[in-house]
Design a protein around this nucleic acid. Structure first.
Lengths: 239, 239
DNA sequence: TATGATATGTCTAGTTGTATAGAAACTTGC
DNA sequence: GCAAGTTTCTATACAACTAGACATATCATA
């Protein structure tokens, strides 16, 4: 232990050095940073000091760590417009990201009361629930669950199996076009399953969107709920 | 890093998600689960983490894995009463299972010394040995071998060929009714052939039942041995 | 029947995350 | 000036997750 301490704590200096490396382009978004052990050796300090430095960068959103995998330079949040026409693929491509879907489950069953109301169908009407993950550049950004009324979107389950595009599936089910009738946003906390899928911790903030899409005649064809990872997506409301 | 928030280990969250899928009927007993690689991709985690999650389900008896084949939803053990009147079909149906027999072999030959003693017939008396598998809902639960004395059950081999019901075959052979005279139970280890038939590993525990069934006059009509898969069948002794 | 592909099982090792604790320097209040 | 609290740095240990490679069993196909 040194006799006197300089005015700047070591952890802060390390933080600053790494921040400079990132801002000067030595590390690009997605790049892996040196391991804690390597940084510890490089700066000649204890691993915990390095961890403290890194935690500052994580808090500031510059770095994202993954247990066992390493620390990576964070990407900027994906901008996701929400307006009259919301199309996942188009939105991601416009943001310069590679869109990807991962289907978790498709099941046809009777609508719950809330779903029946949202879709304007009879109680217990047959619907098809479609759950999955949305990813941008390979990173999960949202969990979604969409419910389709089978009376207005016949065989939607088969169409969903054949294409990853909801727009395409709806088209094959006879819905030539659809628009967003309503969107409600709420901040919620991630539960254990959402945290699992989104690579977050339980309790991390999520932005939940609840929406209804309607066909040209104004009939609901999709009741959707999406939970966006709070720090990975920025929703832009178009007016 | 956030200090205070509880965090479920990823392997536990995955375990929980799969457990919920099973309990909610998305996977039925006997169904194959997605492969480790598929689950790894679905949850975006390392295959070892998935394996740990699965191992919890295996430990809890919910899932059974076989090297090279996959992971399957385990069935709950079938309850199988043993009392004065033991009827395979009735027992399985009473347990809510679909009974099925698969005949491996029927051969008429001379009785061995042990069989002769058990059936109370002369040394070398002609008998008919009937070997097969018992299944519940398509899953093998036991290997059996029954020996019938031809002097008391004439043409039993032909009758066995005509019906999968032993009760029915005996009836056609002139045995109007029969009851259990004795049952002896022993725990044994599966040999390689039994393991193969029962989809177990060699050395897994089996419950071997050795029994004699007698006609109304008390004469033995069937000497039976059944090896039950230890974890797939629970024998209930009626008194 | 042989072979290639697929899937589980095992081993070794690296990396991050958490827990606990000690010591010294610094800060604050009296 | 001193005591108490905080900050900084160090240390060890273990858990959780990742990574890679290879062995063995099963399945499908030619």
């Amino acid at each position: 232990m040194r006799n006197t301490r300089s005015s700047t704590p070591v952890w802060q200096a390390i933080s600053g050095a790494l921040r400079a490396d990132i801002s000067e382009g030595r590390y690009l978004p997605g790049d892996k940073l040196p391991t804690e052990a390597q940084l510890s050796a490089r700066f000649g300090v204890n691993r915990h000091t390095v961890r403290h430095a890194l935690s500052q960068l994580v808090d500031d959103g510059l770095v994202r760590t993954r247990r066992g995998a390493g620390a990576f330079v964070a990407s900027t949040p994906t901008d996701y417009p929400i307006g009259a026409r919301v199309r996942f693929h188009e939105n991601l491509l416009a943001a310069g990201r590679r869109p990807e879907k991962r289907v978790l489950d498709v099941e046809c069953r009777a609508a719950t009361a809330g779903e029946a109301r949202a879709l304007d169908v009879g109680d217990g009407a047959p619907v098809c629930a479609y759950r999955g993950l949305s990813l941008a550049d390979g990173a999960p950004i949202a969990v979604f669950e969409s419910v389709f009324p089978l009376e207005r979107t016949p065989d939607i389950d088969r169409h969903l199996a054949d294409t990853s595009s909801v727009t395409d599936a709806l088209n094959r089910a006879g819905v030539a076009d659809y628009t967003r009738a309503s969107t409600r946003l709420t901040a919620v906390l991630a539960d254990v399953t959402q945290a699992l899928h989104l690579h977050l911790r339980e309790g991390d903030p999520l932005l939940r969107s609840t929406s209804v899409n309607v066909d040209a005649a104004g009939n609901p064809v999709e009741y959707g709920r999406t939970w966006f990872a709070g720090d990975r997506v920025t929703l832009t409301l178009e007016t």
